[in-house]
Simulated assay, not measured.
Amino acid sequence: MTAAPGAPILGPMRFIHTADWQIGKPFRNFGEKESVLRQARLSAIEAIGRLAQAEGAAHVLVAGDLYDNEAPSQKTLLEPLERMRNFSAVAWHVIPGNHDHHRGNGLWDRAATLGLPPNVHLHLTPEPASLGENAVLLPAPLRRKSEVNDLTDWMDSAASAAGQIRIGLAHGSVQGFDSAGEANNPIAADRAKRAGLDYLALGDWHRTLQIGPATWYAGTPEADRFNSQEVGQVLMVDIAAAGAPAKVTAHRTGAYRWLSQAEDLSNATDIDSLEARLRALPDLTSLLMRLDLRGTLDLTARADLARRLGGLEAAMFWLAPNLADLHVRPTLADLEKIDFDGVLREAAEKLRQQAENPAASPAEQRRAEEALVQLYLLTRDSRGEAA
């Protein structure tokens, strides 16, 4: 439904579009850093609130998955609500997503029982909600983790006052696009046009993506995975009037950057170059990196690489080197450093043969290579030599 010709112009609208906070998300693979990453997701809420205040955005639209699961502890349930409460001049509008869908006696009923902050508005039914006289919000909340039908269908016939800006809020996968999300909930790619929406705010994909002139995924405000959104951000949306194009500006809110990189190594020069380039990256102390290394090195270079990776691991917030495709082929000089002619040299020769044996499985070859590296390091350290 579109505004009638000659409808009054009610004025501009500025709001923030965000989604996929997933408060309570575990980061068990990160050991002692898990609590820091969990806290960062809460800190992102405060960054959004400060941005809204600074830029005069009266409304923040949260397009689903505020929580990571449907049964958070009471502390986890209250933590984001209390942070939103602290920004009393900002109205926060929330719909359930697939991770935190609305069901009877579920987390949203628990939250309501505990008492919602007056500036937090849950939209649990598909019905128009006022965003002041200028705009109307058309939410599509999820009541199940997975929906067969497109829950945004109702927006096509939803009524709004003449001249009001129409904003849709939904969580799911737009049909016809390669989804990088998790929700199995279809959304028509042309929903904004069909429903006369000035903007359709979507959640589920953890990266910022424009689907059409008025349809956007905000991404997550704090990045949480590799090969997705490197840095968390939100979208500031300005609409001059009903029917006017939306101006969308991304703002960084995340503290941490998630970067994946692949490198080929064959000699000491390659290692020098790799370390120099990684150390030149900005904000190493807030960088999480997955580093896939490929190629073949001799033992001396491989030991040097281990030393340098140790330094980079200490410099970065998190470094996860993947050495599965980096092979070790010792030179005669490498083997003589282990032992010129003795028991250790014999052991090194057997490990080299196993590492180069085409009949051995990749796992067996890998174990032999790692054992060679450890033997080299042990003998080097016993002689007091540097890598």
Rank of each mutant, 00 (worst) to 15 (best):
M1T: 10
T2H: 08
P5G: 05
A7W: 12
G11N: 11
T18P: 04
W21L: 11
R28E: 09
V36Y: 06
V36M: 11
A40W: 04
L42Y: 04
A44V: 10
I45E: 11
A47F: 03
I48V: 15
A52M: 08
A54Q: 15
A54S: 14
E55V: 15
A57D: 15
L66C: 02
D68R: 09
E70H: 09
E70L: 12
A71G: 07
A71Y: 14
P72N: 10
Q74C: 08
Q74K: 10
R83D: 06
R83Q: 13
A91V: 15
H93Y: 06
V94I: 14
V94N: 00
P96N: 02
N98I: 08
R103D: 08
G104N: 15
G106V: 14
A112C: 13
T113K: 14
G115V: 15
N119V: 15
H123E: 13
L131S: 00
V136I: 14
S146R: 15
S157P: 02
A162F: 07
I165F: 02
R166E: 07
G168P: 01
V174L: 09
G176Q: 01
S179M: 13
G181R: 03
E182D: 08
N184H: 09
N185Q: 09
P186I: 06
I187P: 03
A192C: 09
R194G: 02
Y199P: 02
A201M: 14
T208I: 07
T208Y: 02
D224G: 06
M236H: 05
A241L: 00
A241F: 02
A242S: 03
A242E: 00
G243C: 02
A244L: 03
A246L: 12
V248K: 00
H251C: 07
G254F: 05
R257Q: 14
L259N: 07
A262K: 10
E263P: 01
E263K: 05
S266F: 07
N267A: 11
I271R: 00
I271T: 02
S273M: 10
L274M: 14
A276E: 15
D283H: 10
L284C: 04
L287I: 13
T296N: 05
D298E: 05
L305S: 03
G310M: 00
G310A: 00
E313S: 11
W318V: 04
L319H: 03
E336F: 10
V343L: 09
V343H: 06
L344M: 12
L344N: 04
A348S: 04
E349Y: 06
Q353D: 11
E356H: 08
N357S: 13
Q365V: 12
R367Q: 13
A368Q: 01
E369G: 01
L377A: 04
R383A: 11
